[in-house]
Design a protein around this nucleic acid. Structure first.
Lengths: 215, 215
DNA sequence: GATATTTTTTGAACATTGTTCAAAATTCAG
DNA sequence: CTGAATTTTGAACAATGTTCAAAAAATATC
């Protein structure tokens, strides 16, 4: 049997691993520079110093490569919005403080999107060709992002079930995502950043209050 | 001088107009069938029964063609969410009723997106190549959509200025858009429609209440 | 160490794109 | 009806992602 899958730890496996990393880095740069549409197989090969065909020894597709870049971006995004983690001793804080934290997270999301616009856009612009399912490892990376939001909702929704909290976390994220997306969308008149911040503060506060007041 | 722009009303102008309409219709069908990525110049030409080059007599780009389809979708979307227009005599209604109307509009947006998913996705998936600006006529079509939402906010935000109302209309639309986008996004676990409806009702109500309570 | 075998890399070749533009077909003017 | 102007045409072009026979390298065998 010849699987063409060298055992882990061999020389070629290592060589391929570094090539893969180099390709991901190059793809990231290309997206930063020219957006998702600026990703070209030949340009990547040239920048990394390998043959075009070599890409396909290391990665199934260019789509696969994009997913790898996106996974990195998701991780960076997660740590960006979770950066100001509440100190451990302040486990149970007031509701207003919890809402303030939610606002802070939402603004961090906006900042990340505005600062890394092309990478952030690639997260949502990219889609699998013709109904091919997203690989599981990528889904998990996405899940981790929502978990970050959900963890903050524990205080606001102490009485709710885990399932409902997860749904609300997603809703909150989605609403903010919508504001950021359309706010930065250049197809429309883009909103000045300070104004956008104010709108986000307003919406997140409203939703946060709606949560505690039960509705 | 030969402008290659036949005067309006001539025979060729008419011929081109019908060809253009046929192309838009064919493009619409193609997007419905296979999504934005399934738009192929040669397939269009075949379906409409013209030469590939003929497309470019009638339309600058395929991008241009997409914008024409999108403009139609925007108009359809606008009339879908404005369909249940309040009767004229009920000009000034209660706040709760106004919020109920907002919820109704948001749900109509969800329905439209879910029913015409590929066309709706094309609205946001498509982007102009390399910073070419969106033509004005398209921007106006987009503006008309926001105006539809804004008109409802008059009652909720009677004391606010027109500018602030317009911003809030955009925020409200954006939040709902985010919920719908991520809710229907197949890259994530798609949320069951009834659950999504409930989330939208919750978020829109919260934002609506936040508006009247001033904050 | 030399040779045979297996594995890995390579880049020219292929299939498909959108777009162009000289030539063919058509329309129009006198 | 003839000649000029216009309009349509589709083969040709450039650029894309992907493949795969052949070259190169690595590994095994004697």
């Amino acid at each position: 049997m010849t699987l063409n899958q060298p055992a882990e730890g061999t020389a070629t496996a290592e060589r391929r691993a570094t090539l893969k990393a180099a390709l991901v880095a190059a793809a990231e740069r290309a997206i930063m520079r020219e957006g998702l549409a600026g990703l070209r197989a030949r340009a990547l090969a040239q920048e990394v110093g390998c043959a075009v065909g070599a890409i396909y020894n290391v990665v199934k597709d260019l789509d696969d490569l994009v997913l790898l870049v996106n996974a990195k971006t998701l991780a960076a995004l997660k740590s960006a919005i979770g950066a100001g983690d509440a100190p451990a001793e302040a486990k149970f804080i007031g509701l207003d403080a919890a809402i303030a934290r939610l606002v802070q997270m939402a603004l961090a999301y906006l900042d990340f999107a505005a600062t890394h616009m092309p990478l952030w856009r690639a997260l949502f612009d990219h889609s699998m060709p013709q109904g091919q399912p997203v690989p599981d490892w990528y889904r998990q990376e996405q899940q981790r992002l929502f978990d970050e939001v959900e963890s903050l909702l524990v205080e606001l929704q102490a009485r709710e079930t885990r399932v409902r909290r997860a749904l609300l976390a997603r809703s909150l994220f989605s609403a903010v995502h919508g504001l950021v997306t359309i706010g930065l969308e250049s197809k429309l008149q883009p909103i000045p950043l300070p104004v956008l911040r104010e709108q986000i503060r307003f919406v997140v506060t409203a939703i946060g209050r709606g949560m505690v007041s039960g509705q």
